[in-house]
Design a protein around this nucleic acid. Structure first.
Lengths: 251, 251
DNA sequence: CGTCCCCTTGATGAGGGTCAATGGGCGTGG
DNA sequence: CCACGCCCATTGACCCTCATCAAGGGGACG
């Protein structure tokens, strides 16, 4: 049998076939609701490392969900000071901050070859009005973004360099695990400089802290490649409960 | 514990009569749509200074909009480290971060006598599905919260103590002006300690910075009472252009 | 094989945290 | 009405963490 000619339409990755749909916008949707969502989503060719998905000031017309690869978003103030506001992995949504003013207040740059789903926002709003669980999930995702920004605020406002770096590594490990990768051995797609900027530290401090954690036998870091040797101690430094500890106060 | 509701007749403030509706959730709604929103909103008796609107871990069932007074929200990590994530003035909405997990990840405390509108969330979702402009405004408000958190991230990640304090004062001044108060003379409802925590600084640094700005003739501060003597220089220190264009929030 | 960029490591110093003492408002109670 | 005590704010002295400046190593890629 000769293989049929390849049609892009058939290769399209539908939400219901996408391994990410438990992490992404379609969470909680019925199958045929997912089809409706599929119909408005655009899947374009991948971005190469260093390409912008959108830039600060661009008109806002769509949300972006990472399908594979990774992206950093960063905002700039009027002095040109740059602050990375997030690193986005598969299943995570970008552009939520642009709804308010109708243009993107931050820029998004691919950290490696990255493919995305582009979700035109007016269509999404229309569809959300028809599908309660889609509306709910959209609100949940926005809420999650707020929660995560606030977690970062605690890091930047209250924590030492070592605590920030530990929290960062634990966070990355957890997210890797959610995506089916190893939580104790992975590659960081972002540079030390990016990590430093994200955590409010300099590149030198990041480097020294990595070295220090390595000397203490908590991690093994070879440039981008990270091995976590002692998850429990790392979580402790990060100020997070040990996984099995039920002693935290619930107010 | 929430204060009991009192007779509507005494407190009846419909959205369409509320001076805040250009800053708040009803923005963009037709008059009779506003009536529908009114029907689901609960207006309870005011909270006294030091009372909690909700606490970390509480079940999430409603959003809160400040009608008068002011509120601080703060989250706690497992070490008990506290980070104030926002100060909320009239027309501003709290609880958006709770949608994600279904409980409040932060606590909200009245900084002075404060009255609020309580908006049951499931009702709001139902109504949003029927009123496109309500849905849109809800999404915009969530988006605004994200944008503001990210502005704070830049402050905490990149700015010196003096820049942070200046930016804080400019921000408060702008918000006062939007609410019809003077932008050059106002009272801060929060303590130095709260400001310090919010900005990632100690109370001593806040106090010293205020004194320094006063010596330079930029402000006049008598405890809670603030006079801004040189808006332009203050904006310059804050890293903002002369007239606000980065952080302007039109609701 | 050379160049560039990223990362690492060391030396030094400053910004802001920490500790300590004092003063001023304000509420409470005599 | 005044006195007391508490809390908040201010100010000073000292110190520590992390930024800054500087130099050098090691991959990646042409």
């Amino acid at each position: 049998m000769t293989p049929p000619t390849v049609k892009l339409s058939t290769l399209k990755t539908a939400c219901k076939n996408c391994k990410l749909h438990q992490l992404c916008l379609p969470l909680g949707l019925e199958n045929n609701d997912m089809d409706q969502l599929d119909n408005i989503i655009k899947r374009a060719k991948p971005y190469q490392k260093g390409e912008y998905l959108f830039q600060h000031g661009d008109n806002f017309d769509a949300l972006y969900a990472v399908r594979s690869g990774s992206v950093k978003t960063f905002s700039q103030d009027d002095n040109g000071d740059e602050q990375i506001t997030g690193f986005y992995l598969a299943g995570e949504m970008m552009g939520l901050d642009a709804v308010h003013e109708g243009f993107h207040p931050c820029s998004a740059l691919a950290l490696e070859t990255t493919s995305v789903c582009k979700i035109p926002f007016t269509h999404l709003e229309e569809l959300s009005a028809k599908l309660p669980s889609l509306q709910h999930q959209l609100l949940r995702i926005m809420s999650k973004e707020i929660t995560e920004d606030q977690a970062l605020l605690i890091l930047l406002g209250q924590k030492s360099a070592e605590e920030r770096v530990a929290a960062y590594l634990v966070n990355m490990a957890d997210r890797m695990e959610k995506r089916g990768f190893s939580s104790v051995e992975f590659n960081l797609s972002m540079s030390r400089k990016d990590i430093g900027n994200y955590l409010g530290l300099t590149i030198e401090t990041i480097s020294r802290t990595f070295s220090h954690l390595q000397q203490d036998g908590l991690i093994n870091s070879q440039r981008k490649h990270i091995e976590i040797l002692n998850t429990e101690k790392l979580r402790a430094i990060a100020g997070l409960p040990k996984i099995s500890c039920g002693l935290k106060s619930t107010g």
